[in-house]
Write a protein that binds this DNA or RNA. Structure first.
Lengths: 345, 345
DNA sequence: GGTCGTTCATTAATCGATTAAGCATTTTGT
DNA sequence: ACAAAATGCTTAATCGATTAATGAACGACC
């Protein structure tokens, strides 16, 4: 049983397909279709359970009502969740989302981009990965609508929806300091990406604002591809120095997972041996024997806003540039318990 | 700058679009295109960076090279990961995947199905949710190609790729018994879904095969929508009975998360107060203070095989029915440490 | 009665690619 | 030398929906 098309309806009603199209698109008024025949057409359409053919529509209109979502790393639950939000929000607006993960690899990202452009998505929402600036430039030049999500490039003027990473990181530092920790380490990725740079900057600023002299050995920047090994080395080093830290900030979820795993291995006690704050969010942080303090980014809002911006741009390509930084909220848990509390225990 | 079409190439080469199409589709031999002109066409195509229009192709051929993936609950990391595998495998074969999560809700699943049918996906891979049998029947009747993944309906003859849940659950029980535990509880979902029924059956069988009399109070079936509350109640009850359990099996990842959270709250010690085995897999199990024994399902293989089956069916609709049950592997960790080990500690 | 305006509906081009059928040429065979 | 076969390329229909342009029928107006 084939799907019913405009033609089928037209035939059954004894009219042209044009007429049917007008009626079903609510253009009866402008095109002065007779009431009687309009009603008839609508009835037949319902009777035959007519569903317009998306492909034909898209081919004609050049609009696919599809959004391409490129995510730097879908295995990170933060991104996985944001993908869900984007998908839901898009669906609410009649859009379909095609998701692709580039696994923090610019080449893969480029491939994805091309596949999706080829599929004629109407626009993109992108969580960029390192080395993909040229891709963003390319989209700009070709006038493809897009919104950057969570990560953006300060040197490229684009729409974006992101978190104030400087502030978040700064807050993490302040929180630790207020809780009585003074020798605070940061494990981050070695990266030129702005969000990472900002996280490092915020951390350093929190120290300097509190007259704590930053020690070079406290900051470890690891390579994404060799995270597991590098994190172990980083922790070994950070604990071996003369300036051994008493608190540690993980700049991402992935770093935290690897770090905590190693900390368990070393049988270090959180927070007495080491206080912990992490970026990202996930059930792990709840279930760890000592629940982990983390920075909660406004996931829902980030996702929804990015869709909102993109759809606005799709409706009106001349819409002005939109950029917004949202605040993360530090959720304090036992992993950063006030030092006084466990010292006297 | 508009995208280049067949017509553009045809014009530039001074030939018909038909010719161009033949050449670019490698049909020069069958359609006897001159070598010289074929070469010319190919060169122009490359020069203009021609990318065929998917929409037009699909409209004509009725094939979109797109797979609809409907997942019962994408927030479950097991399913999230399987989605990645499916996506990767599909991409390797030139297919694009559109993912939708129905959040264990049959109505939502129905909506998704229709949206995707409307988008003319070539076929489906489905992790069904409760109450969606009619949808599967509908697909069968309409002759839409699909493969069920991870969950299937024994009463409906379909292709499927799933885990041997009976065996997995049986193994979990045996493992606990061998480790010295005798009063074993199971927290499962209240559901008619076959995978859940099988997990319960396997558990019971493990007990009876070892001459342990099953106690009704050991089995708790909770409602998905109220998991959090129900799990707490279940654990309270399971620990309050005269036949208080010394080990607990969680039938899914979601149940385990909620259960472990509550177990932490109660300050119960794993495994001395309660040994734990769980279905599902996630970083949480690693990072828990006492790593959790779990049943590892062959995630990669499940995902890849489902794609393989579907693509085979798409190529040849008369392909015979394919059904396969794969074995899960019990990964033993400290949460089911031999009772003798910690008794003497 | 001819012109102009309405009203209602149809025709046909279009989006971009595919492909059966057809039409010239040239080559082959006898 | 003439029919048959092979070669090389074009025409036009098609997938399904949209929409500008056109047309027919009827009433009103001077």
């Amino acid at each position: 049983m084939k799907k019913t098309s405009l033609k089928d309806i037209a035939q059954k009603a004894g009219v042209s397909t044009a007429l049917v199209s007008y009626v079903l698109n609510g253009k009866e008024k402008e095109t002065r279709v007779g009431e009687v025949i309009a009603k008839k057409v609508r009835e037949i359409a319902k009777e035959l359970n007519y569903q317009p053919n998306h492909l034909a529509k898209s081919l004609r209109s050049g609009k696919t009502h599809t959004i391409g979502l490129i995510i730097a790393d879908i295995s990170n639950p933060f991104f996985a969740n944001i993908a869900r939000v984007v998908e839901d929000e898009a669906k609410r607006n009649g859009y379909t989302v095609i998701i692709g993960s580039c696994d923090e690899n610019a080449d893969k990202s480029w491939d994805l981009l091309n596949v999706l452009i080829n599929r004629q998505v109407d626009g993109f929402i992108i969580v960029s990965c390192e080395g993909s600036e040229n891709q963003i430039q390319y989209l700009k030049e070709r006038n493809v609508p897009f919104v950057l999500l969570d990560r953006h490039f300060p040197d490229i003027q684009t729409d974006f929806v992101a978190t104030n990473n400087y502030k978040a990181s700064y807050d993490a530092g302040i929180h630790l300091i207020k809780s009585g920790y003074e020798r605070i380490g940061l494990i981050a990725y070695k990266s030129d990406m702005y969000h990472m740079v900002e996280r490092i900057r915020g951390y350093k600023h929190a120290l300097s604002d509190n007259h704590i002299e930053f020690d070079d050995n406290w900051l470890k920047e690891v390579i994404f591809e060799t995270t597991e090994r590098d994190v172990k080395i980083a922790i070994d080093e950070i604990l071996a120095t003369d300036h051994k830290v008493d608190a540690l900030i993980f700049a991402t979820y992935g770093l935290a997972i690897n770090g905590l795993r190693y900390i368990n291995e070393l049988r270090l006690k959180v927070p007495s041996d080491l206080a912990i704050v992490s970026f990202g969010q996930a059930e792990v942080f709840d279930l760890y024997y000592c629940p982990i303090t983390y920075l909660r980014q406004p996931l829902e809002l980030l996702g929804k806003t990015s869709v909102e911006y993109l759809l606005k741009k799709l409706k009106n390509p001349d819409e002005g540039m939109k950029q917004i930084l949202m605040e993360a909220k530090l959720i304090a848990r036992d992993s950063t318990m006030a030092k006084s509390a466990w010292l006297t225990e």
